[in-house]
Simulated assay, not measured.
Amino acid sequence: MRLKLTYSFGTITIHDFFLVGEMNEGVLVSYELNQVLIDIALKYFPNKPVIYISRRRNSYSVNPKVYLKSMQIKNLVGIAIVLENNTVIDNTAVEKLFISKPFEIFNNFEEAKFWATNLYNEKLALF
């Protein structure tokens, strides 16, 4: 499955076992925006593990407290951050404090997909 959803805040691409989020420049990932992401995960992955990959090509802000709500999604098994642009501010150290599931940072998308594939295969047996 590969489906691209376009919103005012950015795009979400649905893959077989992961979501890829690309936020627009200057966006604030707030509770309301995070709820949209949660709803997408629950709609497209209701009964199987899902990994969220954030492709950080643009500079935007994340309220790290949104992760507290995201961590309640039972089938969300991991989060990958891809820092593809050296000019994007890296706030992942702060974000990681709010995340209780596997969380990794990558320099390119292919590495993140490889990690997501391994994590998915590992967690699939639990579902």
Rank of each mutant, 00 (worst) to 15 (best):
I38V: 13
A93F: 09
S70P: 06
T87P: 07
L97F: 13
G10T: 05
L3E: 10
L33V: 05
E95W: 09
P102I: 06
M23N: 09
I38M: 05
V50P: 01
V50D: 02
T92V: 06
K74C: 08
Q72P: 04
L76S: 11
N108I: 13
K65C: 05
V62S: 05
N86D: 14
Y60A: 09
Y7H: 14
I53R: 00
N75M: 14
Y120G: 02
V36I: 07
K65W: 08
V20Y: 00
I89A: 12
E110M: 14
P46R: 03
T87V: 13
I12W: 01
S70C: 12
F106K: 05
N75G: 09
E22T: 04
R2I: 11
N86G: 09
L68Q: 15
D16M: 08
R2P: 11
I38L: 07
L83N: 01
V77F: 08
S54V: 03
F103D: 01
Q35I: 05
Y67S: 10
G26F: 12
I99A: 06
V20R: 04
V50W: 04
Q35K: 07
S30K: 08
K65G: 08
T6P: 10
N108S: 15
M1R: 11
I53Y: 00
L119N: 00
F106I: 06
K69D: 12
A112Q: 02
I14P: 03
I53L: 03
V82K: 00
F18E: 00
F18N: 02
P64Q: 12
A112V: 00
E122V: 06
V88L: 06
L33Y: 06
Y44K: 03
A112D: 07
D16L: 10
N121E: 14
